[in-house]
Nucleic acid binder design. Structure first.
Lengths: 191, 191
DNA sequence: GTACTATTTCAACAACTGTTGAAATAGAGG
DNA sequence: CCTCTATTTCAACAGTTGTTGAAATAGTAC
């Protein structure tokens, strides 16, 4: 039971295990209620080791909630050219990200953190920027940005009820059904 | 500077001042980042006095975020009978609550708390229950509840971006304009 | 004036937090 | 076999937190 010091016998990547434990903890309990001691315990490791690999708690958080794959790269092709069904593509893109477990944990961590600090969650700005840049370029008038943010608000709201609060039946619903229902309403904001 | 013990000279309602300070603090900083010492300092009072009036921190929070006026009473008449513009009335009701400063603080506290604990925010269940009970009674099919929650998700999402994150331009937009834009989309969920 | 009660502060505890410096260990390179 | 370096734990500090029990004060009822 008493773990000795020094390197581990086998070649398990301890650093990665810490990062995984941290991401899961931040997603489940948020920033403030996640203690470094608990992350260390989940990774079966001493708390000091967490500080050794990732510096401060804020640093660990930043490293934990960074999306592991290049979203920014896959977005543009997802949105595409055709403005007729841009709403559906946008919704499909958004929710398909959330269905990837690792990405979901990262996004949950980001969302929970931004809601306690009041910072803007990266996704929100990301969505509305994407809408503005690729879809709504031909939209005119002063409510251009407002419409983009309303799109973001709806998708974020769904993510909130489904993934954070886990309200039923929306939490257990088929993602495809949600996309099918949300997309038309988003589409009306874009045209 | 050194405040003596015993009752205050004038008839200021100290208990109420504590409650006001607590509501404002919970709304601004959330549950975890609001310390009892800070609430006490804002109310110009000793921390022990907070515990004397309201018991534990959780009790203080509960007392702080309870909506000060009877929403449940004014809701039914707000929703009304006519299903044609139920969406607009629902949106108007929802956002008019948020424009009352006291209520906004209480709702912000609830929302922030539920997002860190994962509990269901009272408003969310409230909205979808209202939709189910008064508006969507003639709706059939298995997606009845889902539609109701999608309505709640959109309005909550707007509240999130507008009041919590304070994203521009939605944060400074005229409430009437937001209602005007959101209502039609909500309406499509109801019919 | 005296006794009482509600109000308010004082002082402190016990628990938990992030963080740090040093010591011990195991394996790799010579 | 010796040395070095990366890895891991140990032990502790310094700050903050919610909470508590007792003491002091002011007003009120007798």
């Amino acid at each position: 039971m008493m773990a000795r010091r020094g390197p581990r016998p086998a070649g398990g990547d301890t650093r990665q295990e810490i990062l995984d434990a941290a991401r899961a903890a931040f997603a489940e309990s948020g920033y403030d209620r996640t203690t470094i001691r608990r992350v260390a315990a989940d990774a079966a490791v001493d708390p000091a080791l967490v500080h050794h690999y990732f510096g401060t708690k804020e640093d660990l958080f930043t490293a934990s909630v960074s999306i592991p794959f290049p979203i920014a790269q896959s977005l543009p092709e997802m949105i595409g050219e055709d403005p007729a069904n841009a709403g559906e593509r946008l919704a499909r893109f958004f929710f398909s990200i959330w269905e990837v477990p690792e990405a979901r944990e990262a996004l949950l961590g980001q969302l929970r953190h931004s809601l306690v600090t009041g910072e803007q969650p990266a996704i929100a700005g990301f969505i509305s920027a994407a809408v503005l840049g690729r879809v709504a370029e031909r939209m005119t008038g002063p409510d251009r940005e407002l419409r983009a943010e309303l799109v973001a608000s709806h998708m974020l709201g769904v993510a909130l009820l489904r993934y954070v609060v886990k309200m039923e039946p929306i939490a257990s619903a088929d993602p495809e059904q949600i996309i099918e229902m949300v997309a038309p309403r988003i589409q009306t904001y874009l045209t």
